[in-house]
Amino acid sequence: MEPNKLEKLFAEKLESREIKPSEGAWDRLDAMLTVVEKPKPKRKFGWLYFAASVVGLLLIGTVFFNQKDSVVVDPSNKIVIGNSIAPKELKAASSDPLNGELNDGETKDSALAQKAIVKNSQIPASNKESLVTNNNQNQVAEVSISNQKTEQKSILSTTNAVSVDELLVSVENPSKSEKQSNQKPSIEVNANNLLSQVDGELELTFREKVINKVNKNYQTVKVALSNRNNQE
């Protein structure tokens, strides 16, 4: 069963034969090889992209948080909060405690006077001496009370004077602060809207910032020009 002569001849002839592949054969093999080889560099690039995206997200995140902070720590807002709290305090300080003291003083005085009157009326006629003495004592007491009253009144008048000024201020300020507080929420809503609209797109925020700034500057220039024209 060994290969015979003819088969050896066949083998020889076939061994020496060469068939040139078509022109595109290498290109096809090249393409197949690139397909097989590609996954590795892709993965490398994938990691790079992943890292870059993480860094980018961090950057965007920090920028956004800084923006939020700047919006929250707006000095005008602080003033608004201060004003809105201050009038209340002023009101409370000016009206409630002083009035309370005033009322307390009056009620005490009136109560004392009433008591004295009651004492006077309740005292029997027979005890005139005692009555006199009592009257004297009452007079003394009344005098002392009146003194106290005048003192208190003077104190009250001073406190009232202060409270009036403060009230005026507080009355004037709240209107401003109310206006401001009316304005501020709208601005805050705008900021939120902007933040929600932008949602990570820095370009838009920058664009809107630029537009806003340009608009503001334009308005101020316009107002200044109109003022100057009016003055002239």
């Binding site: 076939l14 034969r17 060469e18 040139k20 054969a25 290498w26």
Partner: peptide, 24 residues
């Protein structure tokens, strides 16, 4: 090696295009 290998493939596969595909 491709000319010789295409010849080898051609021994087994009659269609030269199929033989080339197999060789690739």
């Amino acid at each position: 090696f491709s000319p010789k290998m295409l010849s080898v493939c051609r021994q087994y596969i009659k269609d030269i295009h199929q033989a080339e595909d197999v060789m690739i």
